[in-house]
Design a protein around this nucleic acid. Structure first.
Length: 482
RNA sequence: CGGGAUGUAGCGCAGUCCGGUUAGCGCGCCUGCUUCGGGAGUAGGAGGACGGAGGUUCGAAUCCUCUCAUCCCGACCA
């Protein structure tokens, strides 16, 4: 029989598989503008779930939301030298308003440090105004040369936190606190294990003192940056004159942080969890957590009774807060529906047929591994909730197992090259800390330092840099990446 | 931005080299009947003017020029 579903096998061509899954699960579609995508309702549903659960965590850490303009005057953008240089190649400009050419071009924000810095300089007067803990949910524009659905699009959605503090220590604490929020979110909500730590100088954000990130491993052995948190030091404070009068009567520059995650996370979820049958969503992010497929035989009385019972179960679960959908479409047969909901990554499927009706039970099938179980209808709410929790955990465990199987340690550069070429994945390797060695590895292997992990492997005193053989200072994790 | 490939119905493709009735095929879609526990069967039906713009020609999906978009591989990035 011909395969109706048309997803390229993951192992055959990962890139095509990725696009096939997105298009067929109706997460997103190409827009008629280069590099831009339309996030379709099902994909946006995932984003909304991400958003609300992240926002909860921001609020819990005392942040508030605000909104700043999408336009950034050129003169603002150019105030922090390293920052301009970092973003110059990918800024989109507005040069005309209506019929009039603008005196000063306006950048469509590639990030908002500049415009927010400008406002902060007005708002902050004394140490009593600190800390400022603001987050913004917004779209940003980066004129990328190479784009890829969700992972890198010209316009994307994200969240950017921008905070101001009285001291370096406080800013550093904030930077690491938010990194940890991302880490916890990735693990517990996205079911994605991450390596987290500090970026090397060559990988840090343009204008930051230090950048920290969380890194996930995709199903093809390439790394995906899933979130970043920057200690901006006083660089932007100096550029935008953000000063406060401290208790000791001295005027001082504030210490700032910024941190963000984007719609790229959706790409990460697809790449980390998906399989040959399509998407697999963690229950905590699934727009539809449970789908009920009633199985009826003909339009007879028993069929009607069965459908009525299925709707009753649906309502009961709904009332209990489960995102559940009944698929009572007449035009598709059960097998077809099973495949479609698997493609869409729905974590649990409930099958309810005549045999189940007689026994007053349902058959529950888990998306991840098609594990089947029978659940009595009495007490179905608790059972399904437990199944969802189990599915969330099983998904994390599977991703963790994959990552562990694709993480290697080596002190030998030749072996390093071989691993990158043949297996990819994460590689821990000792490094002297010199960006020359880092660049050499990048040139020769296309692998770059992802982070110097906090949850990694400590460097030992007798270890040497895999490139220059000088004494190693760090044990970063390397990978090819998206 | 360099190298390569692709663009024909909602999706996947053939046709293009070597111009010539009314542009085909599979899946999907619509209607009817039978079906329904892992992508049903059958009968009938609708749907495209060939990515876009110019040009060559009696005639262009097919040849030429430009352009747009996507994918893959490289150089840069959430």
């Amino acid at each position: 029989m011909q395969e109706v579903r048309n997803i390229t096998k993951k192992s055959e061509d990962f890139s095509r598989w990725y696009v096939d899954v997105i298009k067929q699960a109706k997460l997103a579609d190409y827009a008629p503008i280069r590099g831009c995508q339309v996030i379709m309702p099902y994909g946006f549903g995932i984003w909304e779930k991400l958003q609300s659960q992240l926002d909860e965590r921001f609020k819990a850490t005392n942040h508030v939301n605000a909104y700043f303009p999408i336009f950034v005057p050129e003169s603002f953008l150019t105030r922090e030298a390293e920052h301009v240089e970092g973003f110059a190649p990918e800024v989109a400009w507005v040069t005309q308003g209506g019929n009039d050419v603008l005196e000063e071009r306006l950048a469509l924000r590639p990030t908002s440090e500049a415009i927010i810095g400008e406002m902060y300089s007005k708002w902050i007067q004394t140490y009593r105004d600190l800390p400022v803990l603001i987050n913004q949910w917004a779209n940003v524009i980066r004129w990328e040369k190479v784009t890829r659905l969700f992972l890198r699009t010209t316009e994307f959605l994200w969240q950017e936190g921008h905070t101001c503090h009285r001291t370096y220590e406080e800013a550093q604490e904030e930077t690491l606190k938010m990194l940890d929020v991302y880490r916890e979110f990735a693990e517990n909500v996205m079911a994605i294990p991450v390596i987290y730590g500090q970026k090397t100088d060559s990988e840090k954000f343009a204008g930051a003192l230090a950048t920290y990130g969380i890194e996930a491993l995709a199903g093809d052995g390439k790394a995906i940056q899933a979130g970043t948190s920057h200690n901006l030091g006083q660089n932007f404070a100096k550029a935008f004159n953000i000063m406060f009068l401290d208790e000791d009567q001295q005027r001082k520059y504030v210490w700032q942080t910024s941190w963000g995650v984007s719609t790229r996370l959706i790409g990460g979820i697809i790449m980390v969890h998906g399989d040959d049958n399509g998407l697999i969503l963690p229950p905590k992010l699934a727009p539809v957590q449970v789908v009920i497929v009633p199985i009826t035989f003909g339009k007879n009385d028993s069929g009607e009774k069965l459908l009525a019972k299925a709707r009753e179960i649906t309502n009961e679960l709904k009332k209990a807060g489960v995102s559940v959908q009944i698929d009572d479409r007449d035009e598709y047969r059960p097998g077809w529906k099973f495949n479609e909901w698997e493609l869409k990554g729905v974590p649990l499927r409930i099958e309810f047929g005549p045999k189940d009706y007689d026994k007053q039970q349902v058959v529950c099938v888990r998306r991840l591994d098609r594990e089947k179980s029978s659940i009595p209808i009495s007490g179905i709410v608790d059972a399904i909730k437990a199944k969802l929790d189990e599915a969330q955990k099983a998904l994390y465990d599977k991703a963790l197992k994959y990552r562990e199987e694709h993480t290697r340690i080596t002190c030998d550069y030749e072996e390093f090259k071989k691993i990158i070429e043949e297996e990819r994945g994460f590689i821990y390797a000792p490094w002297c800390g010199d960006s020359v060695c880092e660049a050499k590895i990048k040139d020769e292997t296309k692998a770059i330092t992802r982070v110097i992990p906090f949850n990694g492997i400590p460097v030992e005193s007798n270890q040497n840099c895999i490139v220059c053989k000088n004494k190693a200072k760090h044990m970063p994790v390397f990978a090819r990446s998206y």
